[in-house]
């Protein structure tokens, strides 16, 4: 049986946390299949000690193709580099994160490799007997879970929802090999030119990678009231989310929107404040580990989905919670 691969992601020479989450998924599969686990990195500027961390967090091998010309994600070039590696090594399984680049690179690569691809998985397992990968994913707004396999094509490809698994602890005693593969410049696709990045706001957040998300809805009544949501998020070390109602009213930017026409998140903790829990919003939060609802309406749909619900006025409840958290912080110091 051939190797299990996970794709590492980098930005500005830093490895993204999803790279380690994928390794904990890959480790479980590779152990069941008794094959090596490989972390594949395409990018630039990730130094030796950071590459070592991939081994310390589960990989047996690292294949790193690094070059300044690969510093930005360009689908066509990355797909050619990855395709070449697949042709050479013929992995049995290839996992990537369901991020903006993973969700672009993987379908592009799957077509070229004539491989099946399952989207946005939250569970992965190996089928007894056949050794096939069982890929389970939410669909239809999280209302069903579909289990999918790819019996006749290799590699078996899947994207995995960020935050749906925890990285393994760093183990400095782990050993493995790091193979640096030079970029073959004939693989560069010159058509797409990346010119840079722009951030609108100081608090531009990557909601999908946040452990804690505090979200506000129309119940907050106006933009300024998102101030208390921000403060609570800051205190808990979380990010701010919003419903479509709040975004369409201009209270928060679109990058904060959670739901069917926004982002899908799987944080450890989601707190919805002044949010009714419409089916299109729930589609984005169903795989959260813990759901908390703060809403004055006892019949709000979000209360029904919540692990913990507070029926009350957000303008009283949130400050009361904030006061306790601030107090707790002071006592700790």
């Amino acid at each position: 049986m051939n190797e299990v691969w996970t794709l590492a992601e980098q930005h500005n020479g830093q490895l993204k946390a999803v790279s380690f989450e994928l390794l904990s998924r890959g480790r479980a599969l590779a152990d069941k299949l008794k094959v090596p686990l490989v972390s594949v990195l395409i990018g630039d500027g990730v130094d030796e000690s950071r590459l070592r961390e991939l081994i310390e967090r589960g990989a047996d091998k690292v294949y790193a193709v690094q070059d300044p010309k690969l510093s930005h994600f360009v689908c066509e070039t990355y797909a050619k580099v990855l395709g070449r590696l697949i042709d050479e090594h013929k992995p049995s399984i290839l996992l990537a994160a369901a991020t903006s680049s993973g969700r672009t690179l993987m379908p592009y690569t799957a077509v070229k490799a004539h491989a099946g691809l399952t989207a946005d998985c939250t569970e992965l397992d190996i089928e007894e007997g056949t050794g096939n990968l069982l890929q389970t994913r939410p669909a239809i707004g999280g209302n069903i879970m579909a289990t999918i396999k790819t019996p006749d094509h290799r590699p078996q490809m899947a994207t995995v929802r960020p935050k749906s698994s925890r990285p393994l602890a760093r183990d400095a005693s782990r050993t493995g090999t790091i193979t640096k593969i030079p970029l073959d410049e004939t693989l560069l696709d010159q058509r797409v030119q990346v010119t840079g990045y722009r951030k609108d706001a100081e608090d531009f957040v990557n909601l999908e990678e946040a452990d804690i998300v505090i979200a506000g809805g129309r119940g907050l009544k106006k933009a300024e009231n998102f101030g208390m949501i921000r403060k609570l998020a800051d205190t808990l070390g979380g990010a701010v989310g919003a419903t479509r109602e709040a975004v369409d009213r201009g209270w928060m930017g679109y990058p904060h929107q959670i739901g069917l026409s926004g982002k899908t998140i799987s944080p450890k903790l989601y707190v919805g404040i002044g949010i009714s829990g419409a089916i299109q919003h729930l589609a984005g939060i169903k795989t959260s580990e813990l759901i908390v609802s703060i809403n004055s309406d006892p019949d709000a749909a979000l209360h029904k989905l919540a692990d913990f619900g507070i029926v009350g006025d957000a303008f009283q409840v949130v400050p009361a919670i904030q006061k306790r958290l601030d107090q707790r912080k002071r006592e700790d110091q």
């Binding site: 209302n143 759901i291 507070i310």
Partner: peptide, 15 residues
């Protein structure tokens, strides 16, 4: 295809 349980037997408190 499975249908996941959507209601979490959560705790609701009044404020």
């Amino acid at each position: 295809i499975n249908t996941p349980k959507v209601t979490r037997s959560g705790k609701i408190v009044q404020a």
